[in-house]
Amino acid sequence: MRRRPGIGGLQTAAAARDQYRLLGENVAKLRTDLMKEQLATFRSQLEDFARKHKNEIRKNPTFRSQFHEMCAKVGVDPLASNKGFWAELLGIGDFYYELGVQIVDICLATRAHNGGLINLQELCKLLRPRRKSDRELVSEDDCFRAISKLKVLGSGFEVISVGKKKLVRSVPTELNKDHNQILELAQAQGFVTVDEVERRLSWTSGRAIDALDTLLDDGLAMIDDGHRDGKRRYWFPCVSSITSVLADS
């Protein structure tokens, strides 16, 4: 287009720009509408699905965890609120709130014994007898979700990974890398010795003793001087399964 001189030329150019912008906006709006429509369809289908498989979602932990994954992908959080469609349909909010309360309960009851660190597996085992009444199975994934909701309370509830195991922490102690490595080592037998820590992790004696002392002070470890070989053993209740029976008593 040949550029015409004068004020008229400028005005035409501005008008053309406006036209382009409008057209562009329209296209964008159209796309968003389409997207919104698609998402709405998806949501309603998800709701249909949830309605249809309501019982399975409630009863079957694997199914439940897959359903959660699906929800997360479309930005639906069935746990976000206790009101509204999801809660009414599935009662799923209550399910996790109740679970959360039971988890807090168990963590407190076993804290004196394990120093506020408990094996997730162990926790599930302890939950089972408490939930006998409603016969709904609880998976580790459910506990995980319930605990992540507890985080909002700022009470320091958290799931941490140590080696292959997942541990639930209910005290605000920070475990550093050294402590983690010791806990990982302890998973094999339930205990470690200073020698073993030095040898397996190639640490100096001071480093091992220092880390073990901290774990002891935090109530995460217990000493055992009773073995025949005379070597002090450091036991970690959070990685052995004695807790279960203790909490019953």
Partner: peptide, 8 residues
């Protein structure tokens, strides 16, 4: 009780 079997 269970603790009776836990060495520490």
């Amino acid at each position: 009780p269970a603790f009776f079997n836990y060495p520490p």
